Amino acid sequence: MKQMRKIYDRAFKEKAVRIKPQRTNVSELAREHGITAPQLYKWKKEYLEFGLGSFPGIGNVKQTPEQEQIALLEKRLKDANMERDILKKAIGIFSKNGH
């Protein structure tokens, strides 16, 4: 019989990762939370690499805060360019009808 995989929410993972520096025995801490020590190390590594972008959930991309900011700015630029192109077309249409 196949064992079901446990899914832990973001708050649980962040709590476990933040407690770790205060504790010397990682295996004991992991057992207390019902996880394995390698899992706790993996979460800690992810948290150190991605910070607030860690543990985004199923199907979401992990991003550092800088990567999130870049993605947001790229989206805003794309929207601004699209608005500009629409306005250019509108000016072209109105200038033809005005003469």
Rank of each mutant, 00 (worst) to 15 (best):
H33E: 07
K13P: 03
N97E: 13
L48S: 04
R31H: 12
Y8N: 09
P38K: 00
L72P: 00
V26Y: 02
A37L: 02
H99N: 12
Y41D: 00
R31L: 06
Y47T: 04
P56D: 11
F94K: 07
S27W: 01
A90M: 07
K45W: 00
R84C: 08
K88L: 13
K45M: 01
R18Q: 14
H33R: 09
K6S: 10
G34M: 00
I58N: 07
G98L: 15
K15V: 10
A11P: 08
I91L: 15
Q67S: 05
V26C: 03
E68P: 01
K78G: 01
K44Y: 03
K20L: 11
N25V: 02
M82W: 14
G34N: 02
T64E: 00
K44S: 11
R76D: 10
I19T: 12
A16H: 07
G59H: 12
K78R: 15
G53S: 06
M1G: 09
G57Y: 08
D79E: 14
N97G: 10
S54C: 11
L73S: 11
K2H: 11
I70H: 02
E32Q: 10
D85H: 06
Y8A: 05
I91D: 09
R76H: 11
K88G: 01
Q22E: 09
P56W: 06
N97Q: 09
E32T: 10
Q63A: 09
G57R: 12
E68G: 11
N97F: 05
N97A: 12
K15Y: 14
T36N: 02
Y47M: 08
A16D: 09
R5Q: 15
S95V: 11
R10F: 06
V61L: 12
G98Y: 14
F55R: 02
K62V: 03
G53R: 04
V26E: 03
T64Q: 02
L52D: 15
A71T: 09
S54A: 15
I86K: 15
K15S: 14
L73M: 13
K78S: 12
L77V: 13
